[in-house]
Design a protein around this nucleic acid. Sequence first.
DNA 1: CAATAACTGTGTACGTCATACACTATAAGT
DNA 2: ACTTATAGTGTATGACGTACACAGTTATTG
Lengths: 250, 250
Amino acid sequence: MAQLPPVVARMWGREPVPRRGPRPRLDLAAITAAAIEIADAEGLAGVSMSAVATRLGVAPMALYRYVGNKDDLLIVMADSAVPPPPDPGGLTWRDYLAAWTRANRDILLARPWLLSIQGDTPPAGPQRLRWLDRALQALGETPLDDGEKFNTVTALTGYALTSATLVHATGAGGREGEAGIAGAAEYGEILAEVLDPQAYPTLSAMMSSGLLGRSEDWVEDADFTFGLDLLLDGVEALIRRRTRRRHDRK
Amino acid sequence: MAQLPPVVARMWGREPVPRRGPRPRLDLAAITAAAIEIADAEGLAGVSMSAVATRLGVAPMALYRYVGNKDDLLIVMADSAVPPPPDPGGLTWRDYLAAWTRANRDILLARPWLLSIQGDTPPAGPQRLRWLDRALQALGETPLDDGEKFNTVTALTGYALTSATLVHATGAGGREGEAGIAGAAEYGEILAEVLDPQAYPTLSAMMSSGLLGRSEDWVEDADFTFGLDLLLDGVEALIRRRTRRRHDRK
DNA sequence: CAATAACTGTGTACGTCATACACTATAAGT
DNA sequence: ACTTATAGTGTATGACGTACACAGTTATTG
């Protein structure tokens, strides 16, 4: 039997309840909440152990009774910063997954610092797994097998993540500053300025025709919806294939 | 006109050539190469300014003549760690994009530390843009408009990224250790152990039926190919639609 | 009721890291 | 020969993560 990594165990409240000693003034939830507030306000860079401790009115070392180290804290943050998934109120699988993916992306836009954590962590907390569960549930009625469902969700997750990254990186998400590029328009200009049409024929042609000039629409639904439909069309095609002649996968 | 952020400028060799002073012993390429070697060997955590400097036989502060700060260095690394994209040797758009996406994922599997950087950075370096260019080029013959092409590539990139993350996170990629979970099987066990069937009906059912038990296949092509085809089917459907009745987008 | 054991939060200390600043050495232009 | 811009160095600083020993607190045990 595999042992639960300590933080994961605590995320699920599977830690033995202490029977002796002073009543704890903190708990994992409070610590995480404080850390998230800081991240929202100042970005991940502002989240230091002392900053979190200060906000809780506590010495930095106190936190180590609840998290093994800072990485642990980040993992827990990455889970509890995620709100519950949308409710499947009698929607078709397609409508639900569309809403699901958009909500997914919106979370990442609202908390860009999640981008720096999620890219590295498998979903193992209650929230992220609830999202996973709901998406799989939406596919429950379809003739896809488990692996296919799982991969479908993976693809959707990836799309949400990449879209959010793009929006955030080009600055259209609102925040700018930081390391340089601040806005899709400027991004386009920079590319146009630098691209050698010979080495980058297609891209530079696109840039001169002003693709990214008007691309504050990255945040708008139009572009996002397009890619989303792309994926869902693929799923739908597969489902139709499976429905017509029912045979095993592969 | 937008100014080039200094690092980006240097990535493209657009820096004024120095006319006086001692001959430089370093250049951005050498620094980046050293940093990448360290990242490959010890992970991103091993990449400190002093570590890189030591490897180059130079004082840490010397690096700051070439990069403004450490984040700059990471940005440059994220670009130059990427090899040239596969060659479109008379392939159909579909075959090429399939190869392209798989190659994309393989890079991320070979250098997992890229996952921690790419999630945050827009592609602005020569390598990443070359990849973008080739993918767009592959779609050149299709009736999709520029925005649609761009979004298609975004979706594919996202899929590669998420797949790689999943493989790497569940440990099937080879490396383990670090923060806990080490291997898809163990991951599955942990989930099975922790999931309340009432709160996670679908997911826990899948787990008990052993979905992740046999999922060392995540690295295998089977699962990856499935999701990829999902996407490409979507693209193909769109192309067919566009080809039949040719009207503007939206 | 006293003694013990388990637990919480603190204070201090250390090693690492990114980076600012002042300096020396070097080579090109005058 | 002299000036001047540049390259790499040495030293210093402040922030950060975290190890460790301790003091205070509470439930359990005798």
